[in-house]
Design a protein around this nucleic acid. Structure first.
Lengths: 410, 410
DNA sequence: CTAATTTGTAAACCGCCATGACGAAATAGT
DNA sequence: ACTATTTCGTCATGGCGGTTTACAAATTAG
């Protein structure tokens, strides 16, 4: 599996894959799953009218999905409408689960999400990972993953895949961490260090955060820019509901967009990159936060307390964000910019100057900016959900494995 | 027809369209057309092996396409290989044609391109359009289009659609020009002013230029940024072989990416936008080119002659491009940046500083920059080809109309 | 209690591609 | 020269998948 899971079926005029009846069946199975997943309990007739197939066709599709354990029959609906009530169908709460994991600078986490999107198991382990070598960290993470898988198993769930969010650049192979500055990792093949029993997918935490916003955000459109600043400043570019990865997988490096071309030097080789003004280090220094633990938390506290130096630092960071985002908005014309991750907590003090700068530099109405409500768990949830989406995108692929599982249990 | 023609069949997991056998047939017809179009004369067996269907299936598809006049049988191949030689199939040089048109600041143009990609008719009319009202300009353009259509008709071609490239922002409806600063047009519905007998599609000239690069460029990848500077500085963002349009259709506005946040004021409301350093006006002023006709031509001549002021102006413009492109490359991670339009002629003097700036600001290998070979006709060709692509993308839709045409002729 | 409406399913049907067999047309080997 | 081999295009058959049509079941409206 070289391509990320949730792009298992990249459709488009470009592909030269054959179009056979089996493919049609698979796509229609996926369509049923997506419809039921997105619009809650639904009768066969309701599904049929939404996806444009006949009731009879949907019946056979649903039968197959129920046999595979991906859908469940909840029983007759209780309608006030005339006519025979339908039998409500819902995505199964047992069967395949998506396993998400996250490698943070100071924590590790894993969780299991069922097809309904419910978190069914989770495990967190705090501890500084900065500077540790990959092997012990991955060993700890593997233990967490196994723990979560075991918990999920106890609830009748089996792992359909594992997705890992890391704070760094990940190659398009979905397993190699090219550069994770805050861990000091370079060119590490995580695929080889993760539990062999699960097909793992690795991606940037900003990307998974953006996907979480796309899939779980309440009013998130299909075209937006999700900005997060856990470590470096990263952005997820979502276009038409798809994540833009770039040729090498490095798209979204907002942190190194030039803000002042003659500004301070940056580790990337450039000068005046956004990170020099709005990166964690830069802001903490400008705010006069002394070294210690949870400096970002302290930053938020002091900002809330009205500390002038802190407020000014955040104001200036917001201005820098505004300049960099002006460029991004001009290039991409997104429907929305979402501030996620650590930024969401600092938004009250960042937003005013950010929005002012963006508005000033935009002809006509400026791109709206909102704040994510997913909190710090966005990347972890996005990772787990990416596996769930892969199942919804191609239920037939999973159904085979599900059959094996059922056979084993019998 | 609200969506641009060449996106007639937007496929993807997001769509909720039914997947029936008719749709399958249509997609397979499209696959045959694309394969034959892209890889020259091909036997049925060769097509079958490329698209993964059986020879029998391809036979029936090809029969249908030949009956519709979209494919032609060239006769037996002359191979040195063993076995019965195949019968070469080629895209028809008669039948549907794409009509492209361009509204430039000082010219109008139209052309007809057949399914093979050959230009079969063209018409140009010089004359300054800046400041003229849309109606007379569109009337002239309509005359050019009718002339081209008549020429094409004489060669057995009928117009399958009309695409118009304009130097300005176009709404996503594909007909409204929101803002064309160099024409001084605002919120003009070109759809209402164009020949009613043809379904027109309007788009930004930078976008069509980028699509021309994608479809006609010799080594153009599927992920690139095409920069053109006919009037303002525009870019076409191509991701995975698809043009990124943005929510409102305004994506690619590279000219208003901030280069120096405190630089000179720009008409867009911002300061220090790329256009203030690399826009036509700015460069001409810095180069000391006096008012007159064909100032860009003069610029190139003097640069070639070694004029120091001109060279310095272009060097500085290249630096500004480098800064703006650094941001774009960090955000999009394209495989290539292509300089097109007027920029290609000035590339010798822009490239060195541009590439130096880009390389300096990039960690690791910098994104390669190349120069388009399409010359100033890129947008016009891209427009005409967008209609051709629409035919290749859904031959069944055109086959119906083709049937009508044949019936009329009989 | 009947009529109307809607749901889910079964049987017959049609369209599309796969399979397998065949003649046609070339090359390779004797 | 003649045969064997290979490849091409086509035809008949079959399987698969969604549609159409019909019908029983389950509800509401009158």
């Amino acid at each position: 599996m070289t391509a990320p899971l949730h792009e298992a079926h990249p459709a488009g005029p470009g592909r030269a894959l054959p179009d056979t009846q089996q493919g049609m069946r698979r796509r229609n199975l996926a369509r049923v799953m997506h419809t039921v997943s997105a619009e809650g309990p639904l009768s066969r007739a309701a599904v049929a009218s939404r996806i444009g197939l006949t009731r009879a066709a949907v019946s056979t599709l649903v039968d197959e999905l129920i046999r595979s354990g991906l859908l469940e029959e909840l029983g007759p609906e209780r309608p006030g409408r005339v006519g025979r009530p339908g039998s409500a169908l819902a995505v199964s709460g047992r069967g395949p689960a998506g396993i998400g994991a996250e490698i943070g600078v100071d924590h590790l986490a894993a969780c299991a999400v069922d097809l309904r999107g419910e978190i069914r198991a989770r495990a967190v382990r705090h501890g500084v990972n900065r500077g540790r070598s990959p092997e012990p960290v991955l060993a700890e993470l593997t233990a967490l993953v196994r723990q979560v898988v075991a918990e999920a198993d106890a609830e009748g769930l089996w792992p359909a895949g594992l997705a890992v969010a890391v704070p760094g650049l990940v190659a398009r192979d979905g397993r190699t961490v090219v550069r994770a500055p805050n861990l000091d990792w370079h060119d590490i093949d995580l695929g080889a260090l993760l539990p062999a029993e699960l097909p793992p997918t690795v991606d940037n935490e900003a990307n998974f955060g953006g996907l979480a916003e796309l899939w779980l955000g309440e009013t998130t459109p299909r075209d937006f820019l999700h900005v997060s600043a856990e470590i470096g400043i990263g952005a997820a570019v979502v276009v038409d509901g798809r994540l833009l990865r770039g040729t090498r997988g490095f798209a979204g490096e907002l942190g190194h967009v030039p803000v002042r071309p003659d500004g301070p030097e940056c580790a990337c080789g450039g000068r005046g990159c956004l990170e020099q003004y709005a990166g964690e280090e830069a802001v903490l220094r400008a705010a006069g936060i002394e070294p210690g633990v949870d400096r970002v938390g302290l930053l938020a506290t002091r900002a809330a307390d009205g500390d002038e130096a802190v407020r000014r630092a955040l104001h200036d960071a917001g201005t820098a964000f505004g300049i960099a985002l002006t460029g991004a908005v001009n290039l991409l014309d997104p429907q929305l910019v979402v501030l996620g991750g650590a930024l969401s907590g600092l938004a009250p003090w960042l937003l005013p100057s950010l929005e002012a700068e963006l508005a000033r530099r935009t002809a006509g109405p400026a791109c709206p900016v909102s704040v994510s409500r997913l909190g710090p768990e966005g990347p972890l949830l996005g990772a787990a959900h990416s596996v769930v989406r892969a199942v919804l995108d191609d239920p037939a692929a999973v159904a085979e494995r599900a059959g094996d599982i059922v056979a084993e249990q019998a």
